[in-house]
Design a protein around this nucleic acid. Structure first.
Lengths: 195, 195
DNA sequence: TGTTTTTCTTGTCCTAGTTCAATGCCCAGA
DNA sequence: TCTGGGCATTGAACTAGGACAAGAAAAACA
């Protein structure tokens, strides 16, 4: 069981590839090991990678006009991170930060190797389209939750959806993800505890 | 200037197609005219279309547990609407409603014709991937705004981003899009007016 | 044209969530 | 083993925005 079996299984979930296609895929991936607390992408930089998480946990976040962080995504094992925003196509610098929260291992593409992949094995275009579609669905659901649910419900939903994350990251990060203050999350938790 | 020139220009924005490819594209599209106030997709149904708006305005929305509507998208000329959620790939029914707010004209795909398009002209896979990517970026920005900005700022941003929409749709729809109550939006507007 | 229905505004009261500050906690590192 | 710096918790005071109600205005429609 080599390091590619994990990513190959993941990419094959909605599209079936031949061994030859997977070989091309794997040959273009670059392995990267990144220590904890490393900022892999700063706002204002061009994002030159798209990373599949083999092991570890990272967060992707904005910083607003008042210096307030808003976490867009926690990426753990089997997830992809990168500035998968549209700005790449308009050559605009990234608006997000990406930071490791644990020691991490990735398999990564850069814009060139990804292009090469699509040229040599066009079926991957489809797989990545579906991937982004899933990402969009998750983001839309989250927007809906953010708007329409009270803090406690949001937190309980989060626990169900990402049961392993609370044990791995600081609570104030989860608060930031939910769009509530760290203090209030603490109060919500206290309320849940005494029920 | 026929009815396809608009959609062809739009789809060619980030990918260049041959005339032959565009011909395939156009031949698979179906023209649809839908009157105002028509619900084109109900929650619980399978979405069998993806529509490019030639003319008119539609809204896409969720209804939450308390019967409260949350608008996900206003689609006007040159935009695409559909339940472009991931659920299509898992054969799950839609969670959203889609309703025309004006008399509308569309060019539409259904799941079969879209598949046929990808088979006969695979380059479209790429164009639709980029399209979804743009959609994702917009949704992420909106999530960020929803979490981090006060109501007035959200409204002013909306005016800048969609300057024509306020003249076309009822204000309480905009409030729902922004995630604030209709009454409060009215108060925000009053405050802006006397400055 | 008047009538009905929908939309918008304004005011009052109320609550979920914020901000700020104080306290204690839990480790990571010397 | 001590120590200092992030974390979490709790409380008190405050506020942005919500809910409700009533009236005004503007569309829709016949």
């Amino acid at each position: 069981m080599d390091m590619y079996s994990q990513i190959n299984k993941s990419i094959s979930r909605y599209v079936t590839f031949t061994q030859q296609e997977l070989d091309i895929f794997n040959s273009l991936l670059e392995y990267r090991k990144v220590p904890k607390k490393t900022i892999m992408l700063h706002e204002g930089e061009m994002c030159n990678f798209e990373a599949f998480v083999i092991k570890g946990c990272v967060r992707k976040y904005y910083i607003d006009a008042n210096g307030f962080e808003v976490i867009l995504q926690f990426a753990i094992e089997d997830a992809w991170v990168g500035d998968n925003s549209f700005s790449i196509y308009e050559d605009k610098p990234s608006r997000v930060f990406i930071e490791t929260l644990e020691d991490c291992e990735f398999l990564t593409f850069n814009p060139e190797t990804k292009e090469e992949l699509f040229e040599r094995a066009p079926k991957f275009e489809r797989a990545f389209r579906i991937l982004i579609q899933r990402h969009l669905t998750i983001t839309q659901d989250r927007l809906f939750n953010t708007i329409s649910k009270p803090a406690m419900e949001k937190y309980l939903d989060f626990l169900e959806l990402y049961p392993t994350v609370p044990q791995r990251v600081a609570q104030h990060y989860i608060a930031s993800y939910l769009g509530i203050s760290a203090e209030f999350l603490s109060k919500v938790r206290a309320k849940i505890a005494k029920q």
